[in-house]
Design a protein around this nucleic acid. Structure first.
Ligand SMILES: [Mn+2]
Ligand SMILES: [Mn+2]
Ligand SMILES: [Zn+2]
Ligand SMILES: [Zn+2]
Lengths: 136, 136
DNA sequence: ACAAGAAATTAGAATAATTATAATATTAAA
DNA sequence: TTTAATATTATAATTATTCTAATTTCTTGT
């Protein structure tokens, strides 16, 4: 349970102006116990449902991208018609249920260490992600 | 170096009619030594370049999807504006160079075994893919 | 070889996610 | 309070992909 004030401070500290819209988006995204996987459309609808206030689709896109750049969200690579985002920005892995189109976290301790015995000269590793596709 | 005749037989055996367009697409996709990672647009342009014959974009989409369903191609999950496909349909992993927007195979022997110590009731594992993002 | 039916190709339209635009409103700082 | 910077918004533009429906090609049986 994070307070509105904390969101305002977090936004200010990130040089993002704490607008009503951004605070509402923070409430929906970060005021929860578990990690949250979502599409822009999911988020757009939840804002109306949970806060009762409408935020324009453009602002949802803008804010999600701003939060991505600040490192408060991350993008999950899956092939879907919509892009998936994650409030869990730590290095972790996923199940993707292809029937339900839902992402599920796999905790790091549930995956053995991943050893990559190959490297590309002049390039460094940015991230290592495992995606486990599930079906019925 | 695979011959045209072999492509024709392969198509017939898959109950896909060996049209001129499909054979050309086969030449571009499968007549190579190394694995080939591509987008629809890459392929569309290569067909013209390599065979001198034009194939409609709709047919490129249709054929890639047909080959996907037959298991001659696979889709690689990365977040990009375009979908990536792979002629290497074996279970394997990838580097994705985010600067050059290029996929590079990681051979299975270059990745230690991936142990997933979690399961979801009623769901079975369809695939396990590692994506290693690279940057300069 | 020919006819008939099935399947494939094609141009172009439709769809839908995302991004761009530019006018208006809000926020921060002086 | 004034002012400038920033944010929001409706709407238009862009673009990857899918759909449509007409035409063409392929296969099979005669
Ligand atoms: Mn898309
Ligand atoms: Mn995508
Ligand atoms: Zn996650
Ligand atoms: Zn590959």
């Amino acid at each position: 349970m994070t307070s509105k004030q904390e969101f305002i401070e977090k936004l200010r500290n990130s040089s993002l102006r704490p607008t009503k819209q951004r605070i509402n988006i923070c409430e929906v995204l970060f005021n929860r116990d578990k990690t949250f996987h979502f599409t822009i459309n999911d988020l757009f609808n939840l804002i109306k449902d949970k806060t009762g206030e409408k935020v324009s689709l453009a602002t949802v896109y803008n804010t999600v991208h701003a939060f991505l750049k600040k490192g408060y969200l991350k993008e999950i690579p899956i092939n879907s018609n919509q892009t998936y985002f994650d409030t869990n920005v730590t290095d972790h892995h996923h199940f993707f249920d292809v029937n339900e189109e839902k992402l599920i976290d796999i905790k790091n301790e549930d995956v053995g260490p991943i050893e990559i015995q190959k490297s590309i000269p002049g390039k460094k590793i940015k991230s290592v992600e495992v995606l486990v596709k599930l079906e019925d």
